[in-house]
Design a protein around this nucleic acid. Sequence first.
RNA 1: GGAGUGGUAGUUCAGCUGGUUAGAAUGUCUGCCUGUCACGCAGAAGGUCGCGGGUUCGAAUCCCGUCCAUUCCGCCA
Length: 583
Amino acid sequence: MLRTHTCGELRLADASKQVTLCGWVQKTRDKGGMVWIDLRDRYGVTQLIFEEGSTAAEVLEIAKGTGREFVLKASGEVVERYAKNDKIPTGEIEIKVSELEILNEAKTPPFTIENETDGGEELRMKYRYLDLRREEVREKLMLRHKMLQETRSYLSGQSFMEVETPVLIKSTPEGARDFIVPSRVNKGEFYALPQSPQTFKQLLMVSGFDRYFQIVKCFRDEDLRADRQPEFTQIDCEMSFVTREDILEIFEGLTRHLFKAVIDTEVGEFVHMQYDDAIKYYGSDKPDVRFDMKFVELNDLAQNKGFNVFDQAELVVGICAKGCADWTRKQVDALTDFVKRPQIGAKGLVYVKCNADGTFKSSVDKFYSQEDLKAWADKMGAEAGDLILVLSGEADKTRKQLCELRLHMGDLLNLKDPKDFKPLWVLDFPLLEWDEESERYHAMHHPFTSPKLDEIPMLDTEPGKVKANAYDLVINGVEIGGGSIRIHDKETQALMFKHLGFSDEEAREQFGFLMDAFEYGAPPHGGIAFGFDRLCSLFGGSDSIRDFIAFPKNTSARDVMIESPSQIASEQLVELGIDLRVD
RNA sequence: GGAGUGGUAGUUCAGCUGGUUAGAAUGUCUGCCUGUCACGCAGAAGGUCGCGGGUUCGAAUCCCGUCCAUUCCGCCA
């Protein structure tokens, strides 16, 4: 080793030791007769000192010539400081340097390597290797490292076995768009990168590995978001001979363990909620239950009183904002503008102020008496001082709009404490989802999800109402993971494919291997997958997963550092038998 | 695919209802400074105002197009 210690470990107790440190120059403070250098590595910062008279002239000269991010090797004695710095752990000591070597010079970096960097997102991504020198980013990757270690240790301790599955697999029509990889050996044919190891983990169950897990990269060629990358990491799990309750229990256990071990947090009850209730009371399949403000439907009270907008609406529904009756006209107008933004798309917003004196003031006073409004308030549990906000229209859209408004109110009223974690299991998702574009049903989760067994007969009569034995883990409005009990027999699987509009031939071509496997003694099984990047960002208190990935891609799915994707040589195209079409 | 916001010094931004030589902070460089740690003081260098076109006597500023970044909608079993 070139060094005897790291830059983060020396303390007053080490005084008078001879040490050698290596690291990067964080800052040089040249005060003429004295020079200080803050030397930084992964572990911390230690101050080096050079003093005219007691430091050799040539050493002082080298010290004065160092720029930001030079790589140094410094040897000397640990001494107690005259002027201590209580802001850093090594602030009581400094190194009186007797030998100094420049291991490498550095160009001046394009942004400052500090927690409060002056660099913008774009620049930091281009020089990501410099960005990663910043403590703030390094800490996030350290959090991820701990999460990885704790996940492996917990699941391994529960007899889960980590098995790797292939990355070059087969393209399937269901779900997200695949990333495609051409095969040179099999010209004209293509692999796909896995959207998840779904079918492989089911095959592992057939093989008898009754508890499997893998921390695995998955790939989806869809548009990006702050919490979505084209390649992302899942904690992927599958178990045999289990019920839904077994799975919920074990992964509640994993989640609790991670909270405890990584950020020393005890989380409360994992509430169970029906999907239908999540939609009805929160307008979302991933409700944020850190705050209440549940939806209350007002059709029976608000309709047939002459207000045309409500009378013609499929749904009239509102929320009650506690203590907001004194909001100004301007504030309420801002809410109206919020819901009328094209992304939300509401036509308008009705409010009712529950005044302190027991009267009501609403934007629809023309149509509703004080008694009418009192009835609304009673149904909504609104008291004097509260503000009722009501939207109306087509049911699905209105619920979605009110969901956005509810979350917005949560922000405005500071009800979303990032240190407060409220886990929630959302249960019994619909099995199928009508797709307007292709005019057929799609599997809401995936085609291997088991329907609720007693509802299988409804597949023929009301397919849209059949529930799946599927579940999502939601924490603070973030979908952390999801899974299901799977189909494990050939007949049910064939029935599912039929309802998804697959012909027998298509089903056999795409998933014949799985249907074959189901004929050789497939155990009942089910599983779950956690979005690992999102879990990390949730633990780290961030909305973006990018900083928890060492080398992320930007919103155009590009890596601006290595400049990918990129064109390839025409020889490569020829070898692969690919002609590019120029549109 | 659609909508919003942004692109000006190495960097972060101001300037934008058109008008002399485009500013500030920070970083960089030079000099001074023996207890700094956001060191201080004095000075200097540093600009294709994203790119292309248009309007105008005159464009960083107005208009059109385009590229890039970012947020959201669609999409994401």
